[in-house]
Nucleic acid binder design. Structure first.
Lengths: 243, 243
DNA sequence: CGCTCGATTGAGCCCCTTCAAGGTGGGTGG
DNA sequence: CCACCCACCTTGAAGGGGCTCAATCGAGCG
């Protein structure tokens, strides 16, 4: 029953009621647990035959580098998230995945995933569902960068992180612990680090949200949500169509 | 053998060698062919139980609207592309899909797709591969919006479109026909329509690319590619790992 | 022949960037 | 135990890329 406590089980259970055998299959994923130091690159851009991982503790991020040294972070990964699921299913990786903090992650081989797909369809559905949710998040980030101001982007991103962390029990309505630097935020939101600092100050002074000393506190959740046009639909928890 | 000519078959064949039975299954997808006028919305944001479609002729786009009336186009779809694949596999649609030109598209029911997945694994792999490629494109668009200048975004987008159209036989090294308005480009690239116009003029005056009267002409392909940092890896055609 | 959609161009402004210069705190080594 | 360092945060000043507002023009079309 230990698995009921793992972040992945917790997240998937929010989408699909998993059977005993599903849980058993899931527990096999947790065998090859490994630890990585902060800054370690788990998957490199251009790498072939990469493994996938399930993040159990700590934070990671996936990003692409540009030739001029600029970086665009595609997504931040928190406990319960898959790392490099696409990389293992399909060819070479088009992005890098790096540990932000010290992390523990279970290595998942292509073989494990394909096995699960043929023997545990319900679990496979849940996994595909999680992958689909990841894609929906990337799309929402695209909207963020394309059509929202710096302040809105920041608000939206912090709200999304908060919602995701709540789902795995790492935050609540009041806020969450956050190991990201302002440089991480800048590379995620397509801003300069300097401007990130100013935006955070503005949001704090306006009594909306405070991000200091590794802690995000929602000072006025409803107003923040309105400003950011934050709608949780794309993170949805109502489960897949296939039951 | 008519199917060998269809854009979808042509695209998937670039990834996986399809068997006769795969081709037969694929041909069943083309049964429920339908026609839609330009501007018609095939799938609405928030809609449940949507169908998927395979676009056979014409152009479409998927987008999200913001409360202030702004629009962010997520992707442009051309013949051979799936429309709303995620919408049918997983819950409510988080985006709208609209016909840009008059289009012909084959409706694909959830049932068809699941059947194909269990009975034609090779085809299923190809379909998953196509879906993965779509996601990689969204990620590249994210990088585009987050870290590139207006000029680079435009160059990158036109090069990507050109590469995709070549794959289905609708363009060559010299250029391609393009029904997009400058408003479409603006909503895709996160710019204003006015600025799109200026950027196009600049690229034309610099002898890089000309977009006029519905035709895109690459005047200096190598230089354009360098400016845009365009690397086709993420559109790759070498096929999936699973053979 | 008016109407509407799309393309084009000018003027002025502002959000965000770059450059620059401190601050602060935790870790490390002498 | 202190001195130094490095990573990160903070703030100011100045510039520019892209925006908004506004007007004109061409073309398809009912």
């Amino acid at each position: 029953m230990l698995n009921l406590q793992s972040p992945l089980t917790r997240k998937l259970s929010a989408f699909v009621a998993l059977s005993e055998s599903d849980l058993a299959t899931l527990s096999r994923f947790d065998r090859r647990s490994r630890t990585f130091q902060a800054g370690h690159e788990l998957i490199h851009e251009g790498q072939t035959k990469a493994s996938a991982f399930i993040l159990s503790t700590g934070w990671a991020c996936s990003y692409k580098m540009l030739p001029d040294g600029e970086r665009q972070i595609v997504d931040i990964q928190i406990p319960g998230d898959f790392l490099g699921l696409r990389s293992v299913l399909f060819r070479t990786s088009d992005h890098t995945i790096e540990a932000i903090t010290r992390i523990e992650a279970s290595e998942v081989l292509a073989h494990d995933i394909l096995d699960a797909f043929s023997h545990a369809p319900r679990l496979a559905t849940a996994v595909l569902w999680a992958a689909s949710r990841d894609e929906a998040m990337v799309v929402e980030h695209l909207v963020n960068l394309g059509r929202r101001t710096a302040e809105q982007r920041m608000a939206h991103f912090l709200l999304e992180l908060g919602a995701r962390l709540q789902l795995v029990g790492l935050g609540d309505q009041t806020g969450f612990d956050c190991p990201l630097t302002q440089y991480h935020l800048a590379d995620t939101l397509g801003l300069s680090a300097v401007h990130v600092n100013r935006v955070l100050r503005k949001l704090r002074e306006d009594g909306l949200v405070t991000f200091q000393k590794g802690r995000v506190v929602f000072d006025d959740f409803p107003r923040l949500r309105d400003i950011a046009d934050f709608d949780t639909t794309y993170l949805d928890q109502d489960g897949p169509i296939l039951r």
